[in-house]
């Protein structure tokens, strides 16, 4: 009953990779993620791919199918021609981990930088009263399943890595809009924050985020543009601005609004092993903590410890020198020349 279809799947990691061809069986009513699973079960057991719910609710299986950012579980095979080649690649905006899996840490970093809901000080739990019409706008944005397709498709970071520092992306603009429109949120400067720290001004409203959103959230029309307009209220309204000049409010606010901090970690890695065989791209393991005694202290006395001398501060499972393969640094040897 199934037919053989031609798939091209990107396989590789940060050292490089390419599109590999597969002939795979496809049955009626299947989606692309089903086919990826069949590949795993039959031809490529170690093909890396994220997925969870397989129902378009968790937003894990984001990938690019024939060049378009999609959820694998929401792309029906019946949308392709019988003899059409289906090309599946990982998201192209984020660093690659392996095969179809990318490191989406960028989004979590931005999430942490976005100020959280500020509960009103005078209300106890259970005393919140909100009207449905007032929560509806924010509810639309809370439909977000965090598939990060909008973050991936946005050309501001997709085509310009250097903007990642200053630009939070559509997902966090709708978060800012959600909180700014929240009837009980007690924080008043979300618009200023969006403009100054999240890089709202980078958006040029080309609406790709709205186009790819699997939840059909009107990201641009209902969140980004209203936020831009709210910023206009505050920042570009000449009358308000003049008033601020006179009362010197602007200087107070500028203090709190400097460009966003750097990503938590942006190690400068090279893609390929250098001439000296050092793998620059290797991820460094966290610093090791040494074993402690039951009081939480390092055992310093030989009498109470199972070996002579102090334990290694790097833990027992590390022996020196480390094999060169494990290193991702190289002595500069600047004295050599």
């Amino acid at each position: 009953m199934g037919t053989k279809r031609h798939f091209r799947v990107w396989r590789g990691d940060e050292n490089g990779g390419d599109l590999q061809d597969y002939q795979v069986e496809v049955n009626e009513g299947e989606v692309v993620l089903d086919v990826i699973h069949r590949l795993q079960a039959t031809q490529a057991p170690d093909l890396a791919c994220r997925w969870n719910c397989k129902a378009g609710k968790c937003g894990s299986c984001s990938m690019e199918i024939n060049g378009r950012p999609r959820l694998g579980c929401m792309t029906r095979m019946s949308t392709f021609e019988e003899n059409e080649t289906v090309t599946v690649t990982p998201l192209r905006t984020f660093p690659i981990v392996r095969d179809l899996v990318t490191d989406v840490e960028f989004n979590y970093v931005k999430a942490r930088e976005t100020p959280a809901f500020a509960p009103p000080a005078d209300l106890e739990p259970g005393e919140y009263r909100m009207q449905q019409v007032d929560v509806e706008r924010s509810q639309e944005f809370r439909k977000c399943i965090e598939c990060f397709l909008c973050q991936n498709v946005c050309h501001v970071v997709r085509d310009h890595e250097e903007n990642k520092r200053a630009f939070s992306g559509p997902r966090y603009f709708i978060r800012a809009a959600e909180l700014d429109m929240h009837p009980l949120d007690a924080k008043g400067d979300r618009k200023e924050y969006a403009q100054a720290q999240q890089g709202l001004g980078y958006c040029n409203i080309t609406k790709c985020c709205t186009e790819v959103c699997p939840e059909h959230i009107k990201i641009t029309d209902n969140a980004i543009i209203p936020m831009k307009e709210r910023v206009v209220d505050r920042r570009y309204d000449p009358i308000v601005k003049l008033g601020r000049r006179i009362f010197r409010r602007d200087q107070l606010e500028e203090q709190g609004t400097r460009p966003g901090p750097l990503l938590a970690q942006e190690p400068s890695h090279h893609a390929e092993p250098g001439a000296d065989g050092v793998k620059w791209n290797r991820q460094v393991a966290q610093g090791q903590a040494a074993a402690v005694d039951e009081n939480g202290r390092l055992p310093l006395s030989e009498f109470t410890f199972d070996r002579a001398a102090a334990p290694s501060p790097f833990g027992d499972d590390v022996t020196f020198p480390l094999p060169p393969d494990d290193l991702n640094y190289h002595h500069s040897n600047k004295w050599d020349t």
Binding site: F117, P119, P125, G126, Y128, R129, Q132, V135, H182, D185
Partner: peptide, 24 residues
């Protein structure tokens, strides 16, 4: 259970509402 639900509102949850503004 009610306390735990109300608590969520202080974390920012937005449940559907009744006419008088409570959680539907």
């Amino acid at each position: 259970a009610p306390e735990r639900i109300w608590e969520l509102e202080t974390y920012g949850a937005l449940f559907d509402r009744t006419k008088d503004g409570k959680i539907s």
